[in-house]
């Protein structure tokens, strides 16, 4: 490689050319992403007077939310149901990801990946409506159950229905992340484990899962993050009872018209998500890795 090219491809100085390409994201996201988020935090110290948002510096919104029992109940419920979803999604996804990574034919694998990417870009709202129809008292599931002589069960407006909705949102992504993690597991290790007399279950537990640990943990974290922030499933499938944090935000914004209190809930949600993400990263990349 001639030296002139290597030096010319590392031009460190910031000039007009570089600034031109850096500016769009800086300006747009500075103005329409960073500023709104900054304002959201600042707004938690503002007050609503005579139905108008008024600049101030008071802690009353924080006190008001933190001293109410419903706020902490809602927080615990949202964390709990998000954690349950992350666990169920991880357990359901693992056999699928394992099958796709180790067993499926390449053509089947390509089709499966296409089917997993597509839902990510197709209306989640409409898919939740589909579950409302399927799970309803007179819906498809109960029609089938009735056909084999089981009495209709009301499945809508339950935490079960909310989890079904959350899974609709996050399961494809969890399978994809797990699949990529499992695809990177060293096949020789798996073969060696078989040669040394380990059965399939023991191989999965002692070789495959430890090697794919990072991806498996991140997949569960993403399932939690997506469910934790979702508004549609707990409202339309869970019947808003008990309310999740997202429902508190919408109630405070749309009917309560109290944006600062909604902002308090939003900031607590962001803090929770950041904590979960960093704990997951610490767990994934942290201790015990050397053992593998």
């Amino acid at each position: 490689m001639p030296d002139t090219i290597t030096t010319s491809r590392r031009r460190p100085q910031i000039d007009g050319f570089a600034a031109f390409w850096a500016a769009p994201a800086l300006i747009w996201n500075g103005l329409f992403f960073l500023a709104p988020l900054g304002f959201l935090v600042g707004m938690t110290f503002w007050v609503v007077r005579n139905y108008r948002l008024t600049p101030d510096f008071v802690l009353s919104n924080w006190e008001r939310m933190f001293t109410r029992g419903f706020f902490w109940e809602s927080f615990l419920y949202t964390v709990q149901i998000g954690a349950v979803t992350a666990m169920v999604a991880s357990l359901l996804a693992f056999p699928v990801a394992y099958f796709l990574a180790f067993r499926a034919r390449p053509s089947a694998r390509r089709l499966a990946i296409f089917l997993l990417i597509t839902p990510f870009f197709t209306s989640y709202l409409v898919r939740v409506y589909a579950w409302m129809v399927i799970l309803a008292q007179e819906g498809v599931v109960n029609a089938v159950l009735g056909g084999i002589g089981i009495a209709a069960v009301s499945m809508l407006n339950t935490s079960f229905a909310t989890v079904i909705g959350y899974l609709t949102l996050c399961l494809p992504l969890v399978i994809l992340i797990q699949f990529f993690a499992l695809s990177n597991v060293d096949r020789d290790l798996v073969g060696a484990s078989h040669n040394l007399g380990c059965g399939p279950v023991r191989t999965v537990l002692t070789v495959v899962i430890p090697s794919a640990r990072i991806g498996l943990i991140l997949a569960a974290a993403f399932a939690f993050i997506l469910s934790f922030g979702d508004y549609v499933s707990p409202v339309f499938l869970g019947g808003s009872s008990p309310p999740t944090m997202s429902i508190l935000i919408v109630d405070q914004t749309k009917s309560g018209n109290n944006w600062p209190r909604a902002a308090v809930v939003a900031v607590v949600m962001i803090a929770t998500l950041v904590t979960v993400l960093f704990s997951a990263l610490a767990l994934a990349y942290g201790r015990g890795r050397a053992r593998a």
């Binding site: 800086l26 996201n29 500075g30 329409f32 992403f33 919408v250 914004t253 902002a263």
Partner: peptide, 23 residues
């Protein structure tokens, strides 16, 4: 710079919506 450009999809859209509405 990259964080500013890449992070928006990791914030729940509900919170983006509230932040944008108020700002």
């Amino acid at each position: 710079f990259l964080a500013l450009a890449a992070l928006p999809p990791t914030v729940p859209v509900l919170i983006l919506g509230l932040a944008m509405l108020s700002f």
